[in-house]
Amino acid sequence: MEKIITVKNLKKMYGSFEALKGIDIEVYKGEIFGFLGPNGAGKTSMLEILEGLRRPSDGEIHMFGKEVQGDVLPELKERIGVVLQQTSFLDHLKVKEILELFTSFFKKTLVISDALKMVDLEEKSNDYPENLSGGQRQRLAIAISLINDPDLIFLDEPTTGLDPQSRESIWDLIEKLKSNGKTIFLTTHYMEEAQRLCDRITIIDHGEVIEMGTPEKLIMKYGGESKIDFACSPTPSIEVLKGLSENIQRIDDHCRITTKNITKTLEDIVLWSKKYNFSLTNVFLIEPTLEDVFLNLTGRELRE
């Protein structure tokens, strides 16, 4: 597969503080590459170096097969789109006027109405961004990043602070961009977002890569066991429950079994309930997530 970004031993120092301690990554054409980590892990530093907003202290960067030395070359900037963590726009300008300004920076650009159509904002072209909702503003930020029809798009925590509905619409949009052949470099601290969108993930903490791979493989390797929650009536005694599994615990009015074999355990629960004449209610399957992967890798929650 064609490599779009190759980073070797990338370091970034802020005075004596080492924000990035030798990062190695590769990003392939057409994939959504997730760069995950808690706040302060170094995600934004890494992203801003790739976007040309910060200089690395050490290391090598290749983008579209060209070595980036010093400043990111204008011809590379022509091929990238950037959505920063902060979504702010120049005051008192209409949506289309902001996009017009950005079209002037690039040699090749989309028609403004097409860019707005991609993000479902074509009816808002004469509105002021301050009158748009949070989700619409974020979609406008994405439209700006798309104005040069980039091959590579950097998205820095694109759904932070958005309500679930807006988040869902941004996810749909990112998936649409991927289906249009764009390569996406995404940073997030939402594991759900990474799990849904990313083809491959790199997890960083304290400026170091702690693991990388596909979400499925990472979960399989580090996610731990699945959990099955259920409630039954009448409420069984602890002794009866222990007859079902040794890995069972009662949490308030329901029970939780931890297992590696979900199918077998589900069968056991059904047989057990029939044997004791319990009626099962509210059976839930809780599978391990990237959150668990991070917890197991670092010993702490992602948003601690």
Binding site: K77, E78, V82, L84, Q86, F89, F102, N148
Partner: peptide, 17 residues
């Protein structure tokens, strides 16, 4: 000052402008 604070200058800098 507000353009610096709210990342508008950064956004400009990320383009070939």
């Amino acid at each position: 000052a507000s353009m610096r604070r709210y990342g508008i200058m950064k956004k400009y800098a990320s383009t070939p402008a």
